[in-house]
Amino acid sequence: MSKAESGNGPAVSDADLADRARSGDNAAFGQLIRRHQDAIFRFLSHQVSNRADASDIAQETFVALFRSLDRYDTGRPFLAWAFVIARNKARDHHRRRTALRWVGVDDQYDRMASQAPDPEREVADRDELSQVERLIRALPEGLRTPLLLSAMEGMSHEEIGAVMDMSAKAVEVRVYRARKSLKTQLSREG
């Protein structure tokens, strides 16, 4: 454990870790991933319908991050850049699923996935939480992503704007619209 990791010194910044990883330090890249994997997984869990898909997409995201390190601008937050890649991977996943459904083979993949509930899923199955998750997934991607990044990851509107390539004001409007839509749907469904 390094001095920074043990709490005896300043934490190593994401930019420093990325620079070290670009220079071939695989441990630095591993540290970056460990630092942000939970946030990326949470984000992806709300983008797709099941944890197995979220886990697969997270792995694809980590591979893409590694392959694209030379394009990362260390002047910007690493996590915002990682969310952009995760968002793109989730979109790719949805496009593949749509194509598979169109061809008629999507059901085969659903049957292959384990149906055994894990303890986390049992907790998440509470009625109210399940209803909210369903409504969030039903939001258009342009509203869902800013809401999740704001509410779940605590990102500022400016940071979300960097992820989504839009102004902070546009993000603020989308978060407002997403919350209003959820509130309306919840009141309708009781």
Rank of each mutant, 00 (worst) to 15 (best):
R126A: 12
P140H: 09
Y109T: 12
L69K: 02
F66V: 04
L129M: 13
L65I: 03
L148K: 05
P119V: 02
H157F: 13
S130A: 14
I85F: 03
D118V: 10
R101D: 15
D127L: 13
R101T: 14
Y176H: 15
R179S: 04
L139K: 10
A124S: 13
F66I: 02
K180N: 06
G142H: 12
R177H: 14
R179N: 09
W102D: 12
V63S: 07
R134V: 09
I160T: 06
L135G: 08
L69V: 00
V132Y: 05
V175R: 06
H46G: 15
R174D: 04
S45Q: 11
S181V: 07
S181M: 15
A80P: 05
A170Y: 01
E158C: 02
V163D: 07
M152C: 10
M164K: 01
G142E: 15
G190R: 15
M164N: 01
A86W: 04
P77R: 03
T61H: 04
E133W: 04
P117K: 14
D125G: 11
P117H: 05
D110S: 08
A116W: 11
L44G: 01
L135I: 06
L182D: 02
D106Q: 07
A82G: 08
A86N: 09
L182Y: 04
D92F: 03
A64G: 09
D165H: 09
S167I: 05
S130W: 01
S45G: 09
R144W: 01
N50L: 03
L149P: 02
E128F: 14
